Amino acid sequence: MVAFRGPKVWLWRLRRNPLRRRADRLESWVVLIAWTLTLFGGVTAGLMAAHSVESGLARQRAEWRPVDAVLTQDAPEPSSRSGTATENVWAKVRWTAPDGSEHEGQARVDPAALMGARVTVWTDAEGLLVTEPASESQARLRAALVGGLAGLFVAAVPFVGGRLVRGRMERRRMDQWDEEWARIGPLWERKIW
């Protein structure tokens, strides 16, 4: 035989009931506040983080420029433990910044490149070496991942906090029931014949 449960009632925790205790009302508010902060806090933090990452990567795409550089030494052979022979290696390069100043640094180049060969490097507005900026699709993916992780971590705080508060309230309620049973229980042990 299946017990009749009746229709599902929305927001049943907030409805009036003469059997509800003060602790039950308090617990219903804790649940409501925790879920509200979890949902809206997580979504807001995720969207803000995604927007920040995407705008930062868009600024990099706008400011960073490819520059022709010249190898100042032969590219070293890739070491046998580092991987395949087609893997890029670090070599010294020289390039001219937009203001006309000469710069030297290390960049990843083809292992077969010889001294004097032209390679393309990326520089920022000051002429310093940077990595190639992320494409629009890569930026969207990075922004989505960072936004999702930020949203999850921010949403976890009120969720876990609400669970801890509810657990504490439950322990307190159980302690109160134990105290009441300690007072009432012995009265039930008397038998009436």
Rank of each mutant, 00 (worst) to 15 (best):
T36S: 15
A3K: 03
R163T: 05
R190A: 11
R5N: 07
T131S: 12
T72M: 15
S55R: 10
A155S: 06
N17P: 10
A143M: 02
R118Q: 13
K191Q: 10
R13W: 12
V31N: 09
N88G: 10
L187Y: 11
A34R: 02
I192Q: 10
P18C: 08
G162R: 00
D175P: 15
L32N: 00
V30S: 00
V53F: 01
W181C: 03
W95Y: 04
R166E: 13
M48K: 15
G42I: 05
S79D: 06
R140C: 10
L145H: 04
W90T: 08
V109T: 03
L19R: 07
V109P: 00
W122A: 01
A34M: 11
L57F: 01
L32V: 05
R25Q: 07
A85L: 09
W177A: 13
P7Y: 02
R168S: 12
W29C: 03
A91Y: 01
W177Q: 11
V119D: 02
V130K: 05
H103L: 01
W188M: 13
V70Y: 00
G151H: 07
S52L: 14
R142G: 04
L19C: 07
R163N: 10
A23Y: 05
E132T: 12
D68C: 09
A156N: 01
S82W: 07
I192A: 11
R190P: 14
G148C: 08
L37K: 04
P78L: 04
G83D: 07
T44H: 10
G161N: 01
K92T: 09
E104G: 05
A97F: 03
T123D: 04
D24W: 01
L32S: 04
R5W: 06
E179Q: 10
G41M: 03
V160D: 00
F159Y: 00
S101N: 05
G167T: 10
E170C: 15
R25N: 08
R183D: 11
G148D: 06
R166Y: 13
V121D: 02
P66S: 04
I33G: 03
V121E: 04
P186M: 05
R20G: 08
M1A: 06
T72Y: 08
W10E: 12
K8Y: 06
L187E: 14
R65D: 04
A75V: 02
R173N: 12
S135G: 12
D178E: 14
A49W: 09
A113H: 11
G116H: 13
M48A: 14
L57M: 02
L187C: 13
M1S: 11
R142N: 09
L145F: 05
G167I: 08
S137P: 08
G105H: 02
V146C: 02
R15T: 15
